[in-house]
Design a protein around this nucleic acid. Structure first.
Length: 471
DNA sequence: GTATGGTTTCT
DNA sequence: GAAACCATA
């Protein structure tokens, strides 16, 4: 009977897990998760990982095996563990299969950076980033053709239920997850995260079911309204592979037919995730260097106080602050608002997009090296296929358009809750009497805008124009 | 200067 | 919930 080390990276699930199925067919399985020091996780991600792993460990032990947790460099731990198990098997006179082929290949070929290696495991994505190429044989740089090529080439892997039983191997040392200190230690700041999320396979499945039942049909209209919770909120589950993208894709297609939804924007969003991974795979420095190199010469402002106000949701621009506080409280921000908040930092404050990227990396439960970096570059205009530099969101108009009733702002900025919809996105133009009635004192209960929207827009245009971007 | 108490910050 | 911060006496 064969034995396999199953190296779990971004596939913390039992259903629809091709690597697990293959390993089980070979015989006994040692599922391993390695916390690699090179994999620097933000605080919100650490919180998520703790709960996800706890949930996975109990699912595995309910099936007769144990999840092995190790800290250190994966490229050392996995082969060592494999050799140890192999030696034990030989010693016991048991024959064994040539196992670990998959993991060996990964370790040998592509651990150049841990962030990038995250995607090596094919089941995290729809398509292998090496496989999908333009006709000229290059990687894609434009979303549209990339998406078309994916639609063409993507064959979802067949779905499989979680195995009822997992034959494990006894007495493999595992670390205790509590000693990893993934949870807050100084004080418990995770209330909002607990109220919003259920990390793990079960939570992922529930989120998908909910979304397909109630969210898919109105998705095209509702996904841009932050107050309406019209998005799937699957991103953190997908990030850790608690649900496979195949399962999401196939279930969506099936529901699509049932609800007679025509063009589905949700599938396209899945492809944006895929596109980001594709970009990171082919451009290792995506998170640090602008894809359009000329942007490195832009004179960003160093403005620690303003950066801090942005982080805390104290910029004085309600829709931006609401988003930043949603992020701080729940570890997540509505996609529409992410675009506004990012645009505000990069354009109105003229602060480096990398500063925003790293704050998001720290605070998002769905922090994903590829999606995060690609999206920041997109907003900053320095990415491939990015929004043009002169497109600068007006947060007041965006707020009025996508949060017309102001409910989203009221939810996250209680000190503005008394303002009528008419002034909620621009309290600084509200009449004195309105402010008084709403118990708002600008500069005291809520800040005045830290920048003038019009002037800062002009400042950004001037700075970006100097780059002499072609087109 | 320094003791006190209240507020803010910390992921 | 502890430490750091700030205003006031």
């Amino acid at each position: 009977m064969g034995r396999s080390v199953l190296w779990l990276r971004n596939d913390l699930r039992l259903a629809n897990n091709p690597a697990l199925i293959a390993a089980l067919e070979a015989g006994q399985v040692v599922p391993v998760f390695v916390l690699d020091p090179a994999m620097t996780l933000g605080a919100a991600s650490r919180w998520w990982l703790h709960h996800s792993l706890s949930s996975l460990a109990s699912e595995i032990s309910a099936r007769g095996a144990n999840l092995v947790l190790r800290r250190g460099e994966a490229r050392q731990i996995i082969p060592t563990l494999a050799k140890q198990i192999e030696a034990d098997a030989v010693h016991a006179g048991k024959s064994h299969e040539p196992w670990l082929r998959e993991a060996d290949r990964d370790i040998a070929t592509s651990l150049s950076t841990q962030r990038r290696a995250f995607y090596r495991h094919r089941s995290a994505l729809m398509l292998d980033p090496e496989q999908i190429k333009t006709k000229a044989g290059d990687s894609y740089r434009v979303y549209g053709p990339f998406a078309a090529a994916c639609f063409e080439a993507y064959m979802p892997r067949p779905l499989t239920d979680a195995p009822k039983r997992i034959r494990g191997i006894g007495q493999i040392d595992s670390e205790n997850i509590d000693e990893w200190e993934l949870l807050p230690t100084k004080f418990d700041w995770a209330d909002g995260l607990r109220a919003t999320w259920q990390p793990g396979e079960r939570g992922a499945q529930q989120r998908l079911t909910q979304f397909l039942e109630f969210g898919l049909e109105p998705y095209n209209e509702r996904r841009n309204l932050p107050a309406a919770a019209g998005t799937s909120m699957l991103s953190p589950h997908l990030h850790w592979g608690e649900i496979s993208v195949d399962a999401v894709w196939l279930a969506t297609k099936a529901a699509n037919t049932k609800h007679h939804v025509g063009k589905n924007a949700f599938l396209k969003e899945l492809l944006w995730r895929e596109f980001a991974a594709h970009l990171l795979w082919h451009h290792e420095t995506l998170a640090t260097a602008p894809m359009k190199p000329i942007f490195a010469s832009l004179l960003w402002r160093r403005a620690p106080t303003e950066l801090r106000a942005w982080k805390r949701g104290l910029t004085g621009v309600p829709i931006i602050d609401a988003g930043m506080r949603q992020l701080w409280e729940t570890g997540w921000m509505h996609n529409r608002v992410r675009m506004m908040a990012a645009s505000f930092l990069v354009k109105n404050l003229l602060i480096r997009w990398q500063d925003g990227e790293s704050w998001f990396w720290d605070t998002l439960v769905d922090a994903d090296a590829a999606s995060n970096a690609a999206s920041w570059q997109w907003v900053a205009g320095c990415g491939v296929d990015a929004t043009p530099y002169f497109r600068i969101f007006n947060p007041v108009l965006q707020g009025q358009k996508f949060d017309p009733g102001g409910d989203y702002v009221r939810r996250y900025i209680p000190e503005l809750a008394g303002l009528p919809a008419r002034y909620i996105h621009s309290p600084w133009i509200a009449p004195e009497s309105t402010l008084r009635a709403a118990r708002v004192t600008l500069g005291k209960t809520y800040p005045l805008p830290i920048v003038d929207l019009k002037a800062s827009r002009e400042r950004a245009l001037t700075a970006f124009r100097k780059l002499k971007i072609a087109g």
